[in-house]
Design a protein around this nucleic acid. Structure first.
Length: 571
RNA sequence: CGGGGCGUAGCGCAGUCCGGUAGCGCACCUGAAUGGGGUUCAGGAGGUCGCCGGUUCAAAUCCGGCCGCCCCGACCA
């Protein structure tokens, strides 16, 4: 391809909104064009890289024994009603209506439709195990798209679904995918950490996220430097040690705490550590098919509520944090709420607060707190569970080592779904005894554009992108320099372009009449693995100049062996 | 959904407070010079000032409403 003809041009200045490195470089390199919030067009260079990522994914999925197919994006809403996800996925579903007033959704993830098609084609255990996948668009009406390609409303996902006859089969399929995912990300030049995760709206039991650790990530995870434990903060467990369990319970005492609303203010006023206090938080929780109801949540004052853990402790589908005003309107005393004598809300306590003695808590009266509250004697909870959020330094549950808290981007996630969809949607097969059994399912997703963004985040320098060779849209960036200044120079460059192309090397030929600085800067920005410069200066020595994108120095390669030499150096 | 910011040429921005014929840089077109890390000069094309309404002799500028985009949070696969 001639750079003069390539659609999409490099930019010296980038739109002000681009903040992350990948977003800026994608725009500067002319690889993407934003259409709307979280919706992008892919120009030829960007599209080429997406295709190369998809090739790696296909190779690994096929090697794992799965078959590729293609499902529609436009799906009758009934398909999601069958699983109940028209309600549990709620607002992120894009809905459209046809001219007969039938409702459709643009598929946000495709468990349901794979199950539908599975049912029409599989009746026997002899057809199992079965691994099916597609690489296709997904549509999610995200509350907040962000970071260029990091969170999109329309995106391409590789989604694979496994169907097994039994739990052991699922374990095997899950492991196959787990290993395949590792290889996909390794081959793409993106280091990932498999971390325990929350299954959220997908349902099911075991699930891992493959996190690319980066400060621009939106997920928080905890990593144990000693034993390797890795988990999303949503599910991370840790050792919580009571600080005051050995104190003898003292009598309750109500005190004036004028204007004190936060734990920090309270602890400061009483001159006690935050661990001596009990933090009160209100949520509105809704369970399937029930109206919202208020929930009072108690954690020790130095801790925060982990909403994912709280959600699963309650079995709630939706959880809404109550702001101070909401709390007041609901008839509670914002700022001085406490479990002692509280009415009108169910109570959830973190297991740690139930062990402590003599904590300070809200008195449910304005500007009053009570000293020396003790679980069991003064208050009880409807649910006691681990609902505390792990932070930097939390002790690893496996080996007691203080853990690191890091941010990361979720590259992919693997789920053991079990029978959630096969039972609700009737995907049964006959086993060897002729008995009907639900298929045991797993689901496995990779966000393709997000992977592209991560590849650039991980593989760039101050001058531009540094493509891993397998992903580069071209192998060689051929720079024609000052070719008009010497007779025959242009012909030599054209010949090299043609010879390399004929030898199977993918060449991007900068044939523009631009100054050297412009050409070299664009070559660095676009990031092809090899830069080859043809100029009168080099031709005088019957040579071309070759520089790897990752190298500091260039080298001269004799013209007569250049094609062979370069072909050997490209993957 | 809450908080903050922004919307003027393809991109980056000034002009808005204080109403009076819409500007700068990059990119683009023409010509010339230059020639190894974003070169210089000359000439040129390009704008419903996000949209709707109001005030005014006159609105990018003031007022009201709406829409869009970005960031933080909430939420989320």
């Amino acid at each position: 391809m001639r750079l003069s003809q390539l659609f999409g041009k490099t930019l010296r200045q980038v739109p002000a909104e681009a903040e992350t490195a990948s977003h800026r470089l994608l725009l500067r390199a002319g690889m993407v064009a934003q259409i709307s919030a979280g919706i992008y067009a892919y120009l030829p260079l960007g599209f080429e890289v997406l295709k190369r990522i998809e090739t790696i994914i296909r190779e690994e999925m096929d090697a794992a024994g799965s078959q590729e197919l293609l499902m529609p994006s436009l799906l009758p809403i009934e398909v999601y009603q069958a699983s109940g996800r028209d309600r549990t996925m709620g607002e992120i579903l894009f809905q459209v209506r046809d001219h007969h007033d039938r409702d459709f959704t643009l598929g946000p993830t495709h468990e349901e439709i794979f199950v539908e098609v599975f049912k029409r084609n599989v009746q026997s255990y002899r057809d199992l195990p079965l691994l099916l996948y597609q690489i296709a668009p997904k549509f999610r009406d995200e509350p907040r798209p962000r970071g260029g390609l990091i969170r999109l409303r329309q995106f391409i996902m590789k989604d694979l679904y496994s169907f097994d006859a039994d739990r052991e089969g699922l374990d095997h399929s899950y492991q196959l995918m787990y290993d395949a995912y590792k290889r996909v990300f390794d081959r793409c030049g993106v280091p990932t950490v498999p971390a325990l995760a929350d299954s959220g709206a997908m349902g099911g039991s075991d699930t891992h996220e493959f996190l690319y650790l980066t400060d621009v990530g939106e997920d928080h995870c905890l990593l144990c430097p000693e034993c390797g434990y890795a988990a999303n903060a949503e599910v991370a467990t840790f050792i919580k040690e009571p600080a005051w369990a050995n104190e003898a319970p003292l009598p309750l005492e109500e005190i004036d705490t004028p204007g004190l609303k936060t734990i920090a203010e309270l602890a400061d006023f009483l001159d006690v550590p935050p661990t001596k206090t009990c933090k009160a938080v209100f949520y509105l929780a809704s369970l399937p098919g029930e109206p919202e109801k208020p929930v009072f949540v108690a954690v020790r004052g130095d801790m925060d509520v982990n909403e994912a853990k709280l959600r699963s402790a309650l079995g709630a589908v939706e959880l809404r944090y109550m702001e101070e005003d909401d709390v007041r309107r609901a008839g509670f005393v914002a700022g001085s709420a406490g479990a002692v004598g509280l009415e009108g809300a169910s109570v959830v306590a973190d297991d740690l607060v139930t062990l402590e003695h003599n904590l300070v808590a809200g008195a449910n009266k304005p500007d009053k707190h009570v000293l020396n509250t003790n679980y069991g004697r003064d208050w009880t909870a409807d649910i006691v569970a681990d609902i505390a959020l792990a932070h930097e330094g939390a002790l690893c549950a496996a080996c007691r080592t203080p853990m690191d808290e890091r941010r990361g981007i979720e590259m992919g996630q693997v789920f053991k779904l079990g029978t959630k969809y096969s039972e609700s949607m009737g995907a049964y097969f006959l086993d060897a005894e002729g008995k009907q059994q639900p298929a045991i399912m797993g689901s496995y997703g990779i966000g393709v554009e997000r992977l592209l963004a991560a590849i650039i985040e991980e593989n760039h320098d101050e001058n531009g992108i540094v493509w891993p060779p397998r992903l580069a849209p071209y192998d060689v960036h051929l720079v024609g320099l000052q070719l008009e200044r010497s007779p025959g120079a242009k012909e030599a460059a054209e010949k090299l372009y043609a010879d390399l192309s004929n030898a199977g090397v993918r060449v991007l030929y900068d044939d523009r009449d631009e100054s050297p600085g412009v050409k070299f800067n664009d070559a660095d920005l676009l990031g092809m693995p090899l830069r080859v410069t043809v100029s009168p200066r080099n031709l005088e020595q019957n040579a071309v100049e070759v520089r790897a994108r990752t190298a500091d120095e260039s080298e001269l390669v004799p013209l007569d062996v250049a094609v062979e030499e370069l072909r050997a150096r490209v993957v």
